[in-house]
Amino acid sequence: MMKYVYLCDNSIDGIFTAIYQAWASRYGHANIKIEAKCENSKYSNIELFAEYIMVNTDPSLSEKVSNSIKKKISREAFEMVCRVALSDFEGKADLIYRFLILGFASGNSIMENISQVVVNQMLRINKNVSNEVHHLLGFIRFSEQENGLLISVIHPKNNVLTLVTPHFADRLPNEKFMIYDDNRKVAAFHIPGNSWVIAQVPELNQKILEEIPEYEDEYRALWKTFFDHIAIKERINPKLQRNNLPLRFRGDITEFRNSNTV
């Protein structure tokens, strides 16, 4: 039997569109594979005996898929699928497809079948993304600019910007802020009185990261002072610190940096 590979955009809409088309094609689930075009192009393993189908993202088809997930499985499952779609796991598109095959057949009870291999993997990835989001709620650092704009630069593993920003929009309703995902060149903007937006920013003006007003430096110094003095000498434990605050986050955290840019 011929194998069909649906190649789609690496986004929730892209993956959902591919799922809709694959399902509607009636080629049979076993003969279908869905692949998201990977963000970091390390992946290019094209299969020989397969037909590649390019998927053009179509929001209306994607919405149909979201609605059926909410209706036939549950809101909770929908949120999980979205988080998995935002993860950096390579086989995520196909995994979601396999999960939905099971889910549409058995309804919400699929969420309790956690020893099932597909469901289990979904839950793991879901947790991984949720954990990174939770970490970033604490580890994001803002720097104030002369004009009052708060800027933060992050390097997350997963595409978490849409999951992180609502928290800050709720927390800082009267602040202009920007969170920049340097790995994906995407930024979230918030302006008081408006809802926040996400935009592609292929090239961030490095100047705005370097021009830091004097009082910003003072607050950083104050924070570093606090950070250094709050540790108890007799209990120093770098291993525990590394467990709790993995090194990969530290490049973006004020108190672990020496340079004075954002």
Binding site: G138, I232, N237, L240
Partner: peptide
């Protein structure tokens, strides 16, 4: 928000 040198 962060973890001090003693891991707390």
């Amino acid at each position: 928000h962060t973890f001090s040198a003693d891991g707390r």
